[in-house]
């Protein structure tokens, strides 16, 4: 896969994350997951997923001009 394709995929995932932040389907859900209310557990998981996504972004889609500046 080319670096441009990877970059586009990761940017799409970022846009998706903005949408997934609005978890309307859990609004009034009172269940527990992993000992936490599901509405909280979802957003803790969201933070972990965003950390992973940002990790992939800096690993595979770091802007070329910044790389050359460091050199």
């Amino acid at each position: 896969m080319s670096s441009r394709t990877i970059r586009r995929l990761l940017y799409t995932a970022l846009a998706l994350a903005f949408l997934l932040h609005n978890d309307l389907w859990l609004w009034d859900d009172a269940r527990s997951v992993a000992g936490l209310p599901v509405g909280l557990a979802y957003h803790v998981g969201f933070c972990l997923a965003v950390a992973l996504l940002m990790g992939l972004l800096v690993r595979f889609a770091w802007p070329k001009d910044l790389r050359s500046r460091d050199r």
Partner: peptide, 25 residues
């Protein structure tokens, strides 16, 4: 209640690093 975490914390967990990545650098 728990809604404050989604409102103030997990929104920052996404927006702030995105701003660091696109703007800060």
């Amino acid at each position: 209640g728990i809604g404050v975490f989604a409102l103030m914390a997990s929104s920052s967990s996404l927006v702030v690093p995105v701003v660091f990545y696109f703007v800060g650098t």
